[in-house]
């Protein structure tokens, strides 16, 4: 199963998830220049919100009927947390020195993770998450699980919907305007606070979709999945050019594929025999981030942004 197409497919699925989460980072960053460190945790709470819905549904219900309800449940949890964080934690710090909201974000991330750890029933260890039946499907030489297909489909749908929304809707235009020049956007009558809330909400929504997809793919969710996923997704956002939604998705895919290929092929490089395999995947992702920051700090699709604050 270590064929190149298989690795590319693995990377594609992994990358779609990174990309979905990265959207949240990049939208918020694009508008308020804040790294919302708690976003990984918002992803995690989305998965747990969906799981909570599933647990409370009658066991006779099929997973296909439950899935929409789980998505709604996860989305409600994630969006509420994301919007609440903006309203009560970040907004009061809008004019504070830059370090203040960053530290708040870290605090929020710790608090959310620990809240799930302490108060979600039996969440101290991994929780079983339902999986989609069917599969694996064989497409050519590639094996695909049904969870992977859901992930890929969700990523495509979300990406297209977001693209259309940002490009053609009135609110989407206002969002771009706010990202480019918030004061002038206000002069056009744009309620920038509302736009910021919407950015957080969309980020939360996509994170929840990613959370459900994560659960379906791996069959298990844990209170600490947000940290790793958040780190990766932020890396993806930076790779793609932070502030650019298409960049986030592209960055996610590049990162996912790079990781899959590094896992499979690094060990074949002479002298690197001992640095392959899953244990080193994180390290190579990090090396990739450093290299991109050195060579193209604005990211793949990013424009050079001056340090504004």
């Amino acid at each position: 199963m270590h064929t190149l197409p298989q690795q590319l497919a693995n990377g594609l699925f992994l990358g779609s998830m990174y990309g979905l989460i990265a959207i949240g980072y990049t939208m918020v960053y694009g508008i308020v220049q804040l790294i919302n460190f708690a976003h990984g945790e918002i992803f995690m709470t989305g998965a747990f919100g969906a799981l909570a819905v599933y647990t409370n549904l009658p066991s006779s219900m099929s997973i296909w009927a439950a899935l929409p309800l789980m998505l709604v449940g996860g989305a409600i949890v994630s969006v509420l947390i994301a919007v609440g964080a903006e309203r009560f934690a970040y907004r009061p710090l809008r004019n504070a020195p830059r370090l203040a909201p960053l530290i708040t974000a870290i605090g929020l991330s710790l608090a959310l993770q620990q809240a799930v750890f302490n108060w979600y029933p039996h969440a101290t260890a991994g929780k079983h998450f339902p999986q989609l039946p069917g599969g694996p499907f064989h497409i050519g030489s590639v094996d695909v699980q049904s969870g992977d297909l859901f992930l890929l489909g969700a990523a495509i749908v979300c990406m297209i919907a977001l693209g259309v929304f940002v490009r053609s809707s009135r609110t989407g235009r206002a969002m771009q305007a706010t990202a480019q020049d918030p004061d002038t956007a206000k002069l056009m009558g744009v309620d920038t606070n509302r736009i910021i809330i919407i950015a957080f909400a969309i980020g939360g929504l996509f994170a929840a979709v990613a959370g459900v997809a994560y659960g379906l793919k791996y069959g298990q969710v844990k209170y600490d999945i947000g940290f790793q996923a958040g780190l990766k997704a932020f890396t993806a956002a930076v790779l793609g050019g932070i502030g650019n939604i298409y960049g986030a998705m592209l960055g996610g895919l590049v990162l996912g594929i790079a990781e899959a290929c590094a896992t499979a092929y690094i060990a074949n490089v002479p002298g690197m025999e001992q640095f392959g395999g899953g244990a080193w995947a994180q390290v190579w992702a990090f090396v990739l981030l450093i290299v991109v920051l050195l060579v193209r700090p604005q990211g793949l699709l990013g424009e050079r942004v001056a340090d504004r604050a």
Binding site: L102, Q274, A279, Q282, I290, D307
Partner: peptide, 30 residues
């Protein structure tokens, strides 16, 4: 050289990588 926020994420990554590397340098994984 980049804006400050990048440092935060790179150091966060480094902290994580450091632990993974020392864990991997055991003669089996690395």
């Amino acid at each position: 050289r980049l804006r400050g926020d990048y440092l935060a994420i790179v150091t966060l990554g480094f902290g994580e990588i450091f632990r993974i590397i020392v864990r991997n340098l055991d003669g089996v994984s690395g």
